[in-house]
Nucleic acid binder design. Structure first.
Lengths: 213, 213
DNA sequence: CGTGACATCCGTAGTACTACTGAATTTTGT
DNA sequence: ACAAAATTCAGTAGTACTACGGATGTCACG
């Protein structure tokens, strides 16, 4: 138990500078060996297949194939590589999606060196590690119910209609429920689409979920 | 940044022996100071109020008041103490409930010393840390497709189509993506509706969510 | 009192989807 | 190898929704 196991690390990010920074930061760390680098999701998948590293340190937003998709692919391939996301955004959606896919960690790009080492070590051992800011934002919603960050400019009536759309009701049913004509429902629906940018009924349902309807 | 900040730790477990073991294990660690001990949830809350430790290392199943209830209480009081659960069970329900309440970590009682130190350090910094076994059991259901309670009789292709519908894609887009004709997509969509009973696109999206697509 | 936001309603044309039916080809299970 | 299931495509008719554009009444606010 005295020897420290070496961690094979793969770094994938579309910014050269950032990759270089990471390499510089980790080069003098004894038990970490950087086995490769890539600049998009496709490369991440390919490099994982050939090197099967212990940990993949990867950005989310990248050209070609983003980090989440790459992670999905890697997990589907049954590779034992643990995935540690390194992102600028602490967006809850991203974090939860990442964990759902099977990622082992998530830290922001302003991470300090010791914390980064800690995160890499933790996930290499199979633990799940979420950095302080990520953790805070993840738990902020549960702790104190936060209101609507983005409301789009929806009026009350429009929200009412949107809620019914999200429940899967037809315009006809919505009209009956609200005791208005179908044309009016269509008007509202149109306004909602304009304001939210959502085209499809399903995308509108997603928006509704975001608004907590 | 050279000085290591001291972590005030509170230990709560109903087994004397286990508490003693933890104390013994941590007594020679420089930057951890054990500020108190308790043997049930009520004591945990009381001790947190008086000492406001950085980290509370606590069991879940305890007499009087269990760990989850105590954690809820502590979070409601607005104390900044981070909670690290130490349990024999890696029950997903417990873990998710713990995180939902606002706990910062979860490790099993067979945790090694270095890992325990790592966990304590991580959560004291605000991170979320889930031990390897906990992480594995948490992701076993998502990572490798777990039982489908209700699959309806959907074929693979139909699931594939359903997933795309749930993402809000039009039949046209789905056809393009899967490289089949719109009519075929319509066929699948129709079959999906028949099998699931869902009429609307939104209801289909709900079904898709239930199936984890 | 006018202006503007809101909620209500309508028409027309076009697109997207549903219902029902039928059928050819490929895959799969025994 | 044969039958069953899955996947593919099509016609026809009808319903649901979208994209335009236009209209009326209410109500708050300066």
């Amino acid at each position: 138990m005295t020897s420290i196991p070496t961690i094979d690390l793969l770094i994938v990010d579309d910014h050269d500078l950032l990759r270089e920074g990471i390499v510089a930061r980790l080069s003098d760390v004894g038990n970490i060996r950087i086995v490769g680098q890539g600049c998009n999701g496709k490369e991440a998948v390919a490099l994982c297949k050939t090197h099967e590293p212990d940990v993949l340190l990867m950005d989310i937003s990248m050209p070609e194939m983003n980090g989440l998709e790459a992670a999905k692919e890697i997990k589907l391939l049954g590779l034992k590589t643990r995935i540690l996301f390194l992102s600028i955004y602490d967006d809850n959606e991203y974090v939860q999606e990442a964990l759902r896919i099977g990622a082992s960690g998530f830290v922001l790009k302003d991470v300090s060196k010791p914390e980064m080492l800690n995160a890499i070590k933790s996930v290499s051992e199979g633990a799940i590690y979420l950095g302080p800011k990520v953790a805070a934002s993840l738990q902020s919603r549960t702790g104190t119910a936060q209101p609507k960050v983005k409301d789009y400019g929806l009026t009350n009536r429009e929200k009412q209609v949107l809620a019914l759309i999200a429940e899967g009701h037809l315009n006809k049913e919505i009209a009956y429920r609200l005791d208005i004509s179908i044309r009016t429902v269509e008007s509202h629906r149109s306004a909602i689409r304009d304001k939210t940018g959502g085209g499809n009924a399903v995308t509108l349902a997603k928006v509704a979920r975001d608004l907590g309807l």
